[in-house]
């Protein structure tokens, strides 16, 4: 029971956070325009993606298809990492006003690309972990009967509700603190998540032998925080923490933060204006 609540919470919290932050940001804009359509369109596409992926996971038996699924998951993680990072940069550039700086057609086309990026991000956020949630709920739910099944359904709903409450608590932060503080906090959360997705993708590539590990492991910090425990697993999901990191992973993690801090430091006005 408790384990079901936890699994559903864990599988849905990531999507809720990403979509929740995008939604809160849009809602605080002076003029959201079609923004909400892109966001909810993305969520709908994500649900379709989750169902499609879950169906494939249920049906896939051949070895080649299993491998293709793994490659697809790696690609999706890396794309999500890029999209989240790009979204944070975009949101920061705009601050609270979406309307200004739309004089030229090229800028408008650029804006359009960002909206599609937002839709794609919402779709991936829901679809990625959503597929696993569907498999878990469908499979584990069917495996039970009678009152156990009712209990299972109740636990699953509690997991979703808890995930939503977790996000709601975060969004309340924008009331207690200033919008600026809330937004800064959201940015850090999103960038950490992007870094964690990058770590996950790179780690899988090392696991397949596509990337050399270089030194493996560089250290063993499992006595401090084991990444295979529940708490360690959550911290790994949201920061990219690993108890036995390979040197390749550390290098890519460091490079990510270097690039991001460089991009964030560039003055927004300079970048959005043509030279």
């Amino acid at each position: 029971m408790g384990s079901t609540v936890f699994i559903v919470w864990r599988e849905s919290i990531e999507a809720m956070l990403v979509i929740g932050i995008l939604y809160t940001w849009l809602k605080n804009q002076a003029d959201t325009g079609n923004g909400m359509h892109f966001l909810w369109g993305g969520v709908l596409a994500g649900i379709a993606l989750a169902l499609g992926l879950a169906f494939i996971m249920l049906e896939v038996q051949s070895e080649l298809a299993g491998e293709a699924l793994e490659y697809f998951q790696i690609a999706i993680m890396l794309i999500a990492a890029v999209l989240i990072t790009q979204m944070v940069l975009w949101m920061r550039r705009h601050g609270r006003t979406l309307k200004h700086n739309l004089e030229t057609g090229m800028q408008r086309a650029h804006e359009q690309a960002n909206w599609w990026g937002m839709a794609a991000l919402a779709a991936i956020a829901v679809g990625r972990e959503g597929a696993e949630t569907v498999i878990f709920l469908y499979g584990a739910g069917l495996a039970q009967s009678g009152s156990a099944q009712l209990q299972f359904i109740a636990a699953a709903i509690s997991g979703f509700v808890l995930a939503f409450l977790s996000f709601w608590l975060l969004s309340q932060g924008s009331r207690f603190f200033s919008w600026k503080v809330f937004f800064r906090f959201s940015e850090i959360l999103l960038l950490l998540l992007a870094a964690a997705l990058l770590v996950d993708g790179v780690d899988r590539m090392i696991g397949l032998g596509w990337l050399p590990a270089l030194v493996d492991p560089v250290w063993d910090s499992s006595f401090l925080l084991d990444d295979s425990t529940r708490l360690g697993g959550i911290i790994a999901t949201f920061t990219g923490y690993r108890a036995h990191p390979a040197l390749m992973l550390l290098l890519i993690y460091a490079a990510y933060w270097l690039v991001v801090s460089f991009l964030l430091r560039q003055p927004a006005e300079l970048r959005s204006r043509p030279a």
Partner: peptide, 17 residues
Amino acid sequence: KKLRKESVIAEGVTRSI
């Protein structure tokens, strides 16, 4: 995490990693 693998396997499915 140490083996760098994560794979959801539905009931009745055989998958090789």
